[in-house]
Design a protein around this nucleic acid. Structure first.
Lengths: 198, 198, 198, 198
DNA sequence: CATGAATGAGGATTCATTCAT
DNA sequence: TATGAATGAATCCTCATTCAT
């Protein structure tokens, strides 16, 4: 029994190593400039082994994307509770997202690249979006309560959340450094852009 | 004399056709999934001809990027004048940018993909940024006048301008349709996020 | 265990087939007029397989050169022993070299072409020269004993050995046939040109 | 009339420039690694112009070969007269050839490369050999007079003349420097190898 | 499950040659 | 005669994928 478990763990380890390698290499070189052989080497497996875990290269990035996206949203909502007030809930989620984008920078970069290129299947992309539901629910509540502007969720996302991606990428490129003050300011801008002005 | 002119024009036409083909194909398939041969075919030239106008594939995208970025900023500031008030100026520029992203959707998509992937040389990227200066100057003025929040330009851009890219991409993906009302709302959000609240 | 050996042997066979094909094709067409695809075909492997054994085309010829040069010198000195007299030793080596150039004509032709064109890396060329040491040692002894003219080794080689290359090439071109008498005469000329006349 | 002459001269100049460029480039890179476009550039003409003077690339090297070979033999026999004694005649010719190989090193290198690779048409090669006749005649006389060994002309050439090519190439590679003493010694070796020993 | 050798299809790039002027 | 832009055919090399073990 525990032998089986150990084997299973080893399998999971390999799969994880492959996903990790994919993220790092695609981040640095882009999807098509990342050969399967390099991914294999970085994950310390044979190229052929990849095909035991994934159907093909496209499947590998698709699954990587979904995995990272899931991790991202899980992190975003981990401490959120529906009982919170709209503003408090938003602030919490926003900060978790900011936190993720800064701490798990590699993963966030990977998502940004996927979201802005034809690299990912539409199906996988849609799959990834689903997990944002709690935020949409919060916004729905906010609109109902007259606290949040009655805008399309896309607009709200564009102004409240997406700018963080831009800032993260810009920071990664070395153009500037996001410090605590910036983050506080960024939050104010985000909140300003979606809250109803009295 | 006019013969020389005709030749020159034909050269320019070819170069433009190549740039156009590059934009369209890279938009749909990504950089590395776009073979030179396809670009050539779409531009109605031989593959070898590309190399008369561009050093190599990298140079082709780099130049395409710079060209499109230049077109973008030119369009953005075409009707702007320094004599305008900060708010009027910003509104004008913002609307021109929105206009560009919606009308020249293909070009805007191309820029978005370039800006979010390691596809473009850093040099070309920096080259492309320069042209934004008038907007930065406007913001400087706004900050001095106490009209615009005293934030880093990166933050201002992230909240005032970048969301348009997200909206444009989302619309392109068919998820939703940006109508006039949305645009008006978007502008309000943008302005809210950077203006100083009284 | 024997499975591993069989695999290893198959690898060696393939490498050898590639080297053989390279020699034949380069002999007939020259380096740059010999496509990798033809080499692959003649060696009964896929073009891509070449790159499992050699870094690139240049590396393939370099290695082929060194291999053939090594074979050549090994053959030349195989039966030579330092205990021999200078004249006997020289005669022996000279005949072995002549033998090689006539029997392994293809290989000798390949060396000649490499030695007279900018086809081979300088490093590989130098690597190939090393193996001639025993002949140089013999000459040193001959000079010390006053049997061989006190000339630069390059001069000795030019007159004692190099003419064989010319004769081999000429014969290969069909201009004339090197028979036993010719060889005996050639040896006399070689010896005459380097021995000290009493 | 003089206009025609001037035009003709310009044509000849161009042809010569092309031949010169071919020699230099082929020497440094080999035949197939020398693009027509580079030859054109070095000769300061358009690529298309080459085809006004030569049928194609092969024709260009063939003609270059014949031209250089002719120059070589012309130089070799320029001061030779049939009235000379065999030994004096040989010494003269040998020295002229040595002279050529050292002074017109580039040209001699070119010939060596052509002579040792499948770069030149057989026809052109044969064409080039013809011009050696005076030397062959001299040797015939020498044999009749019992001064020169009764060997095949190929053997005589291999030992009396060809070593100079080897020495020239070796010097060009920087391995050693051929000085006056070496030349005197080389001549002695050459003469030793073909003269009848009393 | 795991491998690494093997490959065929394809891609970037070059180049001898031509053609309109 | 002279050109330079244009090209199609090759060439080197890479890479996703498979297969025998």
């Amino acid at each position: 029994m525990s032998i089986k478990m150990a084997k299973l763990q080893k399998s999971i380890d390999k799969r994880n190593a492959l996903i990790k390698a994919t993220i790092e290499l695609v981040n640095n070189n882009g999807f098509h400039a990342t050969p399967m052989s390099k991914i294999a080497k970085m994950a310390n497996v044979s190229p052929a082994t990849i095909y035991l875990y994934f159907e093909n290269k496209q499947d590998l990035v698709n699954q990587t994307y979904i995995e990272v996206k899931t991790e991202y949203t899980k992190y975003a909502f981990a401490t959120y509770e529906q009982s919170m007030s709209v503003e408090a809930g938003f602030k919490l989620i926003w900060n978790r997202i900011a936190d993720f984008k800064l701490k798990e920078c590699e993963h966030a970069m990977f998502l940004a690249q996927c979201d802005n290129s034809p690299m990912i299947d539409e199906d996988s992309r849609n799959e990834g979006i689903k997990h944002l539901q709690p935020l949409l629910d919060l916004w729905a509540r906010g609109k109902a309560e007259g606290i949040i502007k009655p805008l399309s969720d896309y607009l709200l996302y564009a102004y409240a959340i997406n700018p963080l991606s831009f800032l993260m990428i810009t920071q990664k490129r070395g153009a500037f450094k996001l410090d605590k003050t910036h983050l506080e300011e960024a939050y104010q801008s985000a909140w300003s852009s979606i809250k109803v002005c009295e």
